[in-house]
Amino acid sequence: MIELQNVTKYYGNFRALDGISFSVAKGEVLGLLGPNGAGKTTAMRILTCFLPATSGRATVAGYDVFEDSIEVRRRLGYLPETPPLYPEMTVKSYLKFIADIREVPSSKQRARLDQVVVRTALGDHLDRVIGTLSKGFRQRVGLAQALLHDPEVLILDEPTVGLDPNQIIEIRGLIQDLAADHTIILSTHILPEVSMTCKRVVIINEGRIVAVDTVENLEGKGGQTTRYKIGLKPVGLDWKNAIEGVPGARIEHETVKGDLVHFDLCLPPEGGYEKVFQAVVAKGHVFVEITPARASLEEVFLRLTRSEENGASEKEVAA
């Protein structure tokens, strides 16, 4: 559905993208991950025909973004990083304008508008002036704009940036919803977002792809330890021995609050959590919390995006 072949982009002498290639299958949700300034927005702008690539080729639904840009634009819904809104318009007149320039036939505009408004939960706000809306609502109007012409492909540039936690959850839910019948590219620098919404991830740093893989595989590559957040109500003081008696098990970040102990349990990659838990329970201690903390995508990300320049120093730290 979407394909980039060896795409390079220079801004003057600055190389923003350096030979990027990846493809997205129909119906797939791909996460574009990278630190700020990595080239995510540039890649998306090339795909949406806003910017030309300096060299290389990009196609959407079989159409070249440069040669057949209008066909590409017909099939795309795009939410830029700052939602492109006209603050003086009302939500309704704005969406009507979008429907017109996105070539939604006037006979279908009503129905499309109703659907999109339901999906983005904007129903009660249609007559409000966009300039008076909160950031979360603006983001929803931005999404509504991208969905209005029912595009096959959605390109969302950091759709949750700057939102409060509730709004983030709403927008993520909406994206998961959309994933059922759209091909989506989503850029972000927030990792949980990727593991929640995407199947596959492209990690870019300084204009180059450093990894393309599924979320599971990347998490697997992550760390050498498996981590659990543990809350324990110990009887007596020998709970530490029970854990550390199991080979490879370590306790980190230990805190005591009242009669509860909280800590991170670090296990070797081959696991062994059964032994630890059995040993602890056998001594009569009570677990109040066991949370697998596999936040290791963070570690992968940091390792991959830092490795090139800091390769040497990081090895020293590791040693």
């Binding site: 025909c49 209008i70 795009y78 830029p80 492109p84 809104l85 006209y86 979008i98 996105r102």
Partner: peptide, 14 residues
Amino acid sequence: RSNTIELLLTSPIS
């Protein structure tokens, strides 16, 4: 200035 140019130029309008 308000980046709505991005909206116009990525819409099927010349």
